[in-house]
């Protein structure tokens, strides 16, 4: 079953153009001028139930607008949306019981209360009976290891613990789809890893579908099997991670340390990125030269050290943003 279906979705914003000074603010009251911005431009995609999908793009690409349309906050100008077979703008309330949302920087928790009280509040919002709420809190507490700080006011928690609680609070009503808008923003690497574990665990334990936006390539690489890249309101790429890597990772980076300088500039399919004494950095295009052929060119007796790696995902994504066209 599909958790999310989006067809030909579009959204235009009118933005007020304000002139400076007294005269400007006068005329903007009497006759405001607007310009239109196409924030989301005819996008279509589907998400399977239980899937973790990364929805990424540079700032202002239309990510948040899309999430807002999927959750019923904004109505589209054109196109159809269905989340768990519910149309968000027609049945927003009904949908609310089935989805959870975490908007990275915006806090939804009451900071002067303990996570426990917060969970009780959210439980009440979703019409859960008190006994059900208790059970659920106990379960979540164990699953996500919150015992240590469940009775500490949120304002005294570390940022990482707080985000943990934000996410767990949005799970109180067992949502089938969870929207996470940049959940790891501003966190240190250890905490990030922690949050990713939590998301993975949640997906595994409850089969929650996760719709994730992030700037952090680590989030995407470690969590998602599928990735959608948007730019200027359009989908520029919709593919599985594996496929993406396969297509884009036809370049290998080989770093070797030789006893003496070797010249590879003449070889087809090999680009010399750096050459300094015996230290070489080569990019090998595997469509033109097989990796084993390339390695054969290196004299093993002369070699001190070798390191072969893929092009980092980050570079690939930057590349895609820049080219901004459908590549596959």
């Amino acid at each position: 079953m599909k958790a999310i279906q989006v067809k030909n979705l579009s959204k235009t914003f009118k933005v007020k153009v304000k002139e400076k000074g007294f005269r400007g603010s006068m005329s903007s009251i009497i006759k405001p001028r607007y310009k239109s911005i196409l924030a989301v431009d005819n996008i279509s995609f589907e998400v399977e139930q239980g899937e973790i999908l990364a929805f990424i793009g540079p700032n202002g690409a239309g990510k948040s607008t899309t999430i807002k349309m999927l959750t019923g906050i904004l109505y589209p100008n054109n196109g159809e949306v269905s989340v768990m077979n519910i149309n968000p703008c027609a049945k927003r309330k009904q949908l609310a019981y089935k989805i959870g949302t975490v908007f990275g920087q915006k806090e939804q928790l009451w900071t002067h209360l303990t996570p426990y009280d917060n969970f009780k509040f959210f439980g009440a919002i979703y019409d859960l009976a008190d006994t059900v709420i208790e059970e659920r809190i106990n379960e979540l507490k164990k699953t996500f290891e919150l015992e240590e700080f469940i009775n500490t006011p949120v304002r005294n928690l570390s940022l990482g613990q707080r985000i943990r609680c934000e996410i767990v609070a949005s799970l109180i009503h067992k949502p089938e789809v969870l929207f996470l808008d940049e959940p790891t923003i501003g966190l240190d690497p250890v905490v990030k890893e922690n949050i990713r574990e939590l998301i993975k665990k949640m997906n595994r334990e409850y089969q929650t579908t996760v719709f994730l936006t992030s700037h952090d390539v680590g989030d995407i690489e470690k969590l998602c099997k599928r990735i959608i890249i948007v730019n200027h309101g359009r989908i520029v790429l919709d593919d599985s991670m594996e496929h993406l890597k396969y297509h884009y990772l036809n370049k290998k980076i080989v770093e070797v340390k030789m006893k003496e300088t070797v010249d590879f500039t003449a070889e087809e399919g090999i680009t010399v990125l750096k050459s300094k004494g015996g230290n070489l950095k080569l990019a090998i295009d595997t469509t033109k030269k097989k990796i084993n052929d390339a390695l054969r060119l290196i004299d093993a007796d002369n070699m001190i050290d070798i390191n072969i790696s893929n092009v980092p995902l980050e570079n690939i994504i930057t590349e895609i943003y820049r080219e901004n066209k459908v590549l596959l």
Binding site: F13, K14, K16, G60, G72, L74
Partner: peptide, 11 residues
Amino acid sequence: YSSSNLMSARI
């Protein structure tokens, strides 16, 4: 508000 186009801060 939901079908809106009035905000600048909402993109």
